[in-house]
Design a protein around this nucleic acid. Sequence first.
DNA 1: TGTACATCAGTGAACGCGCGTTCACTGATGTAC
DNA 2: TGTACATCAGTGAACGCGCGTTCACTGATGTAC
Lengths: 234, 234
Amino acid sequence: MTGAEDARTPRERYRAQVRAEVKKHAWEQIATAGASALSLNAIAKQMGMSGPALYRYFASRDDLITELVRDAYRSLADTFRATAGSAQTGGAGDTGETGVDVTALAHALRGWALDDPQRYFLVYGTPVPGYHAPDDITAIAAEIMATLLDACAALPSPGPATRFAAHLEDHRQWARDHPAPSATLHRALTFWTRLHGVLSLELAGHFTGMGFDPALLFAAELDDLRRPHDEPTE
Amino acid sequence: MTGAEDARTPRERYRAQVRAEVKKHAWEQIATAGASALSLNAIAKQMGMSGPALYRYFASRDDLITELVRDAYRSLADTFRATAGSAQTGGAGDTGETGVDVTALAHALRGWALDDPQRYFLVYGTPVPGYHAPDDITAIAAEIMATLLDACAALPSPGPATRFAAHLEDHRQWARDHPAPSATLHRALTFWTRLHGVLSLELAGHFTGMGFDPALLFAAELDDLRRPHDEPTE
DNA sequence: TGTACATCAGTGAACGCGCGTTCACTGATGTAC
DNA sequence: TGTACATCAGTGAACGCGCGTTCACTGATGTAC
């Protein structure tokens, strides 16, 4: 068995290939000069084509950027799903918990971010005022959050009933279908904001010259997230 | 006494005034379309001047942007200093600690960020690949960090001796002149990354549609930062 | 107070550039009989 | 297998635009005697 049949016509396959190559050059351009410097004409030149040729493949510059954003989200969602699927805890003398490992997710996130910082910033960086992502991208973001929620739900202790968790009790539209208690939602949000806090400052270079190893700060935050906390004072 | 003498000549005062007006329009443009869309010609048009006139006031577009970045840093540093100077703890039946109040700093940071999100992102948002801030801006960043360190040093408990603090023991170039123990440095860094994590995701709109109140998540993180923690497990 | 000069703000024309995008067209590839 | 037609990739010219930046110049403001 040499592989599944490719139902696509040669033309379709060629189209897909050129589209992929355009995107590849687009990412290189973004990595070099930032997303705002992305230029269709420059990409065409790099590919040895004339500018208007690209309009066979993308309706407009905005269209291309939106697709890059979508691909970035999709890439992170897939990375999360793959990590969640293969990295269950409970194997090596652990505390007996089962399910998705939140530590593995954290390292997957960090790896994904370091792999291409500008891709990370295209998702989580400075927003362009007025831009609204289409619905299908929002759906991918929700998918990412769902994977994270599953992992947090699998943590040994459900976490303390924080005041913010009480607020979430009545404000959990984003997770209304998830069975996890609100304390777990709080944990997931905290996981997200804390790791993003370290990662985005690190990738933006705000730690350079300070001397310490950002990976260890990341690890410290992760350790803290895994540790059950006291009840909040008062 | 109607005020101190203004040693500046009328021409100098005029210059300063026009420069300020240029910056004002620049900020409006950034708020509307992001920093990458900033255009000298557009600013001149808004001011009813011709484009080249602005070159009397700024050497180049990059020069203007650098100055906006500097002003943003300066603004945050001043806000922090003012907050630290006027908001000592220990007044209202507190636990007896004295010195700068970290809670006040946190709220000052949040207020400053919400006041002008694009200004926040100009400081902490997506970096432009290849751009390096001049030294005097780095110095302002250090000033901000110093104020934060002072506040963390004034917290009731010095915090536990975390593993990361042990690493900082030998990697605290950025705070080699500060008397605070490394555990306090760890606290300051955590303060920074956690609050930035919540703020940047909030300002970028990643919480919109989720239903909860970002202010309460921010408050929850702040509460957690103020609470002394257990020793790390193991 | 008045005159001569220097300083400086602002203009308008111009340069060169690269951008996104449209359009009519050529030539190659695939499809139908 | 060959022919007629439809589909589609890619080109080159062109449009209009706005950008940053320079330059020589005008006119107003300030300074020195």
